[in-house]
Design a protein around this nucleic acid. Structure first.
Lengths: 350, 350
DNA sequence: CAGGCGCATGTGAGCGCTAACAGCGGGCGG
DNA sequence: CCGCCCGCTGTTAGCGCTCACATGCGCCTG
């Protein structure tokens, strides 16, 4: 039980440990060859029903589990897919990861995950390398950073990779929410309410999504003949929303509407507005992005742009599976439309 | 480029595909035996510096990557650890998972993750089985449900497993936050402010953490000679906080203080109080649990019990690594103390 | 100066599985 | 009635790596 005994056990009577059950053990017990056992496992139809039953019985009795490493060595496939992600604590990545996993499990694959601790191109490639040398059959990259998207083009073209939220115009298959459209809907909504302009607090500049949302906001204003004010740089955290919100109201500008690049930052903004004695939406209207589960319980409930993260995750896994099966036709770009969810944080200007 | 060509290529000129570089290729190029290459990779010190350099050069030139499946087959170890989790979208599990991954990567292990879609005992065991048959070297179970904790005892004792947030009195090594203490601190704080009793909205009854928090709350009240009111059952979601909060204020009871089992539910409670025209903390004080990043931006900023999820994740990985190395001494139960973070949602009763 | 020891490297035998082909009966067409 | 094909099962040869042991060489020791 204690460490000393353990050590002795292992050394002296090592053979008392029952050796792992392998295929030949099952074969012997069932009175067939090991290859027949293999067939029962991989292609049951090719074995006579009666034989199959004997083998299955033996498998059950011995509690046999095939050794995946051996199978991987023989077939060249591991049945594992890799996922590269940046920060899986963020709601979006976490949701997509969750959906990816469930889809992978349904398809009989397992999921290996590598977290990045940096947004640069090098680490992304390292992560991909690491996964590849582990022998994953394919990779999904949830790395909506610009650098990550660029890294994709350095991955050998014949290796199955699917990007989530990446560059739509690159060579890599992608599943993404239409961020531009989402930003447009948010900005449009505020303009339609009668606001003369819309301010914007962005996500981190090295995130692809943040840039596209900013573009969507900018071009919507320009189309309406409004010259966009300077955007304020956030980093997704409620804290940065608070800080940028403070800057905004301290700037002396006449602000009546703000499109904030995600819901957490919007929370920070609303907090600082409250502290400044400003009312939402009375004095200032706020629109967020994501529609996290908390958004409808904020004070006031947040008007936001809903992204279907789970759908994106599921679709990306489906796309990867198709590529693993070498079904090279079919779509390689899937765009999911976001929806505006109007709640109580937006109203016409006073 | 298209699927048709692909098929033909593979069939007719299959050998044009450059075969994967394997160890003997490196050996040949460096003018040594394959075993020397293996040594350079696994135990560089055992090879003469000059030889080592030649081998490393050859590895670089050929872009050689060891085949992990082959190594796993030969050694019996895969260098992969499994993580079983329930819902990795929740902030706590997501944070712990993140820390576990980083720690695993530091230690040169990769992480295989299985998500459960049910809280029952069967699926937990299935997940463990699946991971084991994939050949993971060890498993961390982030499954703070009661059933999961029970499942642990059915796992063979010699297989390295570490539980996170599980039963402290079971045989399995565990890393956990002291939920009881956390609940005590929350309740104590409210009593110290002068509230005559503290109501409680719980987490789901099948979660171990939820039960212990309830016990902590209950016993603190009892120690103070107060008979605990009936707790209200939540499910961690802001929605359930909203609903239970509504029940609470509709009950006609004289409620001045509520300890809510997590921050999201606390948000829901504060929302419903606001809608009912009640002030926090003026009319009712609220304490949450977790200290999620948003908590300090809620309206009002939430007094809550901080759990160091990252620390728990890191510690659990460290414990697993020790077990993988067969260091069977050392602690098998680690308890992390939570801290009360006092913000603006609590005050003396009016 | 013989014996031996330690260091650096090589050789051969598996790890447990699948792929490819071989064998072996029985039914069918020529 | 012979040959052939088909359905089922067995045999053999790897997949790419590590482990255990063998080898060769220089050096120390008695």
């Amino acid at each position: 039980m204690h460490s000393v005994d353990e050590g002795r056990d292992a050394a002296t009577v090592s053979r008392r440990v029952p050796r792992q059950v392998v295929m030949v053990d099952v074969a012997r017990r069932a009175g067939v060859s090991h290859q027949t056992v293999s067939r029962v496992i991989n292609d049951p139809e090719s074995v006579r029903a009666e034989t199959r039953e004997k083998v299955l019985a033996a498998i059950r009795e011995l509690d046999y589990r095939p050794n995946r490493a051996a199978r991987a060595l023989a077939t060249g496939r591991t049945g594992t897919v890799g996922v590269v992600a940046y920060d899986t604590r963020l709601y979006g990545p976490a949701s997509m990861l969750h959906a990816i996993q469930l889809a992978a499990q349904d398809a009989g694959h397992s999921v290996n995950i590598v977290s990045l601790d940096s947004l640069e191109r090098g680490p992304v490639l390292d992560a991909v390398d690491r996964l590849r040398s582990q022998g994953v059959d394919g990779i999904i990259i949830i790395a909506p950073e610009v650098a990550a998207a660029q890294a994709l083009i350095e991955i050998p073209a014949d290796f199955p990779v699917v990007a989530v939220e990446g560059l739509l115009d690159g060579p890599t298959p992608v599943v993404a929410v239409d961020q531009f459209l989402g930003a447009t809907k948010a900005t449009r909504h505020l303009l339609d309410l009668g606001h003369s302009t819309v301010w914007h607090i962005t996500g981190p500049g090295d995130w692809y999504e943040a840039r596209v949302r900013e573009q969507g906001w900018r071009s919507t204003l320009e189309e309406a003949g409004i010259s966009p004010p300077d955007p304020l740089p956030g980093d997704w955290s409620p804290r940065s929303g608070y800080e940028q919100g403070k800057r905004l109201i301290g700037s002396g500008a006449d602000v009546t509407a703000v499109f904030v690049a995600n819901d957490q930052m919007a929370l920070g903004v609303m907090r600082v507005l409250y502290e400044a004695g400003l009312e939402v939406p009375g004095d200032i209207s706020i629109v967020g992005f994501d529609d996290i589960p908390e958004a409808s319980y904020y004070a006031p409930p947040l008007t936001t742009v809903r992204q279907e993260f789970l759908e994106v995750g599921t679709l990306s896994m489906a796309m990867l599976l198709r590529r693993l099966r070498r079904e090279l036709d079919g779509p390689v770009k899937r765009v999911v439309e976001p929806d505006l969810v109007v709640r109580a944080s937006t109203a016409p200007p006073r």
